[in-house]
Simulated assay, not measured.
Amino acid sequence: MKRPPGVTPPPAGPPEAERPNEPRAAEPRRRAPGGIRRSKKKTSSEVEAITEPIDIVSGSASTPEASSGFRSLPPLPEVSLGDGRDSGRDDDDDSSPKPWWLTRRTDPTVEKAAEAEKNLAHAERRRRRYERAEARRFTQATRTRRRKYLMGLAATVVLVLVVVLTAYSPLLAVRTITVEGASRVDASAVSAALDDQLGRPLTLVDFGEVKKTLETFPLIQSYVTEARPPDTLVIRIVERRPVVTVAADGAFNLVDAAGVVVETTPARAPGYPTIDVAATPVDSPGFAAASQVLLALSPEFLAQVDAVSAPTPDSVTLALTNGQRVVWGSAEDSALKARIVASMISNPGIPDVTEYDVSSPEAPIVH
């Protein structure tokens, strides 16, 4: 409520003289109406001078202050506290701090507890990350071994699956059989004999059955099989090579080193020497030694050989087409003996030779 001009408020209590003696330092200091802050106490004489009655210049007499005839004391000076703060503010001042429960703010204790809990959670997360990093560092070797083991196991499983799928896949079944290296042997007959392998996967071909089938062809000395994906089986054969001619029943048989008849002709085939099977049977050691000697000769020198005889393995003798003879001896060092005989025959300084003896290649003899 606004005061009338010229009117001072009545004193809030009895005069200073009537108050009980109390320590002045315990009373709170009051701020003067003008907002001037006094830090110096007033003396008792100053207070008594102020409490003398004064005339009212203007104002309404209806107020209790005017009818009493006394002027009210000014507010007591404020007592300055040790911390220098203003402790005597008016309770009605809006700028004074309010307790937290009268505001919309959260309890500071709760805020501090939430902040501490947040910091604790953050520290716990950092601790867990550090522990995981340390665990990974100390288990690096174990994890590396485990990774290699798993990779090896996976590669093995993949390889097994590939082999199984390849073995039983109908996409790799045999549909074509090709025979290579056949001249005297009928290739179509060999393919027809192996028809039972058609339709089988290449990895499941019965090679034992293939061997039995090819053994029925006497002209095949050896063979090699080859699988050509996706559906071809190749048979490479090596035919028997005839080395001598054997006269039998008005015909001539071409016989290989094993005594197998390769071919029969009504006339003697050129380029193959004859052998007397009566003196050198086909199944005798002498026949085997003679065959080894003939296989070691070059085609040019073999064309000059007319007949061969070998009563024993160490007495192989060649009869040339020009009437000369070559005492060969055993089949050992046949390649060296063949070169020595060829050089001696082509040497014009050795005339009128009827026999060459190379049974001892270190010391050849001519007769």
Rank of each mutant, 00 (worst) to 15 (best):
E215C: 01
E209S: 14
I220N: 07
A193R: 14
D195P: 01
R228I: 08
L219S: 08
T213F: 00
G208M: 07
G208A: 12
D195A: 10
V234A: 03
L214D: 05
T203A: 13
D206I: 12
D231W: 00
R228G: 04
D206Q: 11
T232F: 00
L204C: 03
P230N: 03
V210S: 03
V205Q: 07
L204G: 04
L204M: 13
T232V: 13
F217K: 09
T216H: 10
F207E: 15
E209M: 06
E226G: 11
Y223N: 08
F217W: 03
V205F: 04
V224N: 14
L219E: 11
R240A: 07
P229H: 00
D196R: 11
D195I: 06
V224P: 00
D206F: 02
T213W: 04
R228F: 00
R241K: 11
T213Q: 07
V224R: 15
R240Q: 06
P242E: 05
G208D: 14
T232N: 08
T225D: 07
K211H: 07
D196N: 09
A227F: 02
D196M: 06
V238C: 00
R236L: 02
G199K: 08
Y223D: 09
E239M: 06
R241Y: 01
T203Y: 01
E239C: 01
I220C: 09
L198N: 03
V224T: 15
V224W: 01
P242S: 10
I220D: 05
F207W: 12
R228C: 00
L198D: 04
E239A: 03
G208S: 13
E239P: 07
F217C: 07
K211M: 01
D206P: 12
V238G: 06
V205R: 09
I235Q: 05
Y223M: 10
V224K: 14
V243Y: 05
Y223H: 12
F207H: 11
V205A: 04
P218C: 00
R236K: 12
D206L: 04
R240Y: 01
L194P: 10
F207L: 14
E239L: 06
V234P: 04
P242N: 08
V234W: 03
P201I: 11
I237L: 07
I237T: 06
D231H: 10
L202F: 07
R241S: 12
L202T: 11
A227Y: 01
D195F: 00
P242C: 05
E209V: 09
V243M: 12
L202I: 15
L194G: 08
K212D: 10
R228M: 02
Y223L: 12
L214C: 02
D206R: 14
I237G: 05
L219M: 09
V243Q: 09
P201F: 04
F217I: 11
V238L: 05
D196V: 09
A227E: 15
L219D: 12
V238F: 01
